[in-house]
């Protein structure tokens, strides 16, 4: 791997690396330091990249490990993360779509679409940042960076099944946070009840 090739790949991925680092570290200053540390470590360990086609997951693995190692050093892991694999089971089944969807509305009205149109990037960032670190990491790797479950399992050193279950619960929590925010910010319309048809005879019907 020559330096020029390495530089081209790093600069090409810089916005993605910084985006992932920002969601992991949650502030720009630490995120920039994390990317700089990642680039330094990647160059130092460049011989460990056996297949140049795998550069992207390889450098994201380095970024994630640098972040997790920094967390351990600072002992900054939130205590809620300790038993995270046993927690949040009910969140996995939460569906934002089910909350928004109003099947009795006329076909041209689409509250799900309206919600997504009103949703700001900062709403999504806030919801991701609010996740416990273990869930946030898996969301960053799967949703923001689009890595395969197998690649994420390799990065985190856990079985693929653990990635699946963490991701399901993380997505549920994320959607629940977006739903709560949507209600607070008035991004959803109040559920309209279907028109009730009275089967009782009105005064006028009575002859």
């Amino acid at each position: 791997m020559d330096r020029e090739w390495f530089e081209g790949r790093v600069i090409g991925l810089l916005d993605e690396l910084l985006g992932a680092a920002l969601r992991l570290a949650k502030n720009r200053h630490d995120a920039e330091d994390l990317v700089a540390e990642t680039v330094t470590k990647a160059w130092a360990n460049r011989r460990s990249l056996k297949d140049a086609e795998r550069f992207r997951p390889w450098i994201f693995r380095i970024l994630t490990n640098a972040f997790l190692s920094e967390c351990r050093k600072r002992a900054a892991r939130p205590t809620a993360d300790v038993a995270v694999d046993d927690a949040g089971e009910t969140d996995a089944s939460f569906s934002l779509f089910e909350e928004l969807h109003q099947p009795f509305l006329l076909w041209w009205s689409n509250p799900e679409k309206e919600f997504l149109n009103k949703l700001l990037r900062e709403d999504l960032e806030r919801a991701v940042d609010a996740l416990p670190e273990t869930f946030r990491t898996v969301v960053v790797l799967a949703e923001l960076e689009g890595l395969a479950y197998g690649e994420i399992a390799g990065i985190l050193g856990v079985p693929v099944g653990t990635v699946r279950s963490r991701l399901a619960r993380a997505r549920g929590q994320l959607q629940k946070a977006l739903w709560v925010h949507a209600q607070e910010a008035g991004l959803t319309r109040p559920a309209r009840k279907p028109v009730e048809v009275s089967h009782e005879a009105s005064e006028d019907d009575r002859v």
Partner: peptide, 11 residues
Amino acid sequence: LKNRLRDAGRE
């Protein structure tokens, strides 16, 4: 929703 999240991953 996935697409919006993916976009949020670019800074």
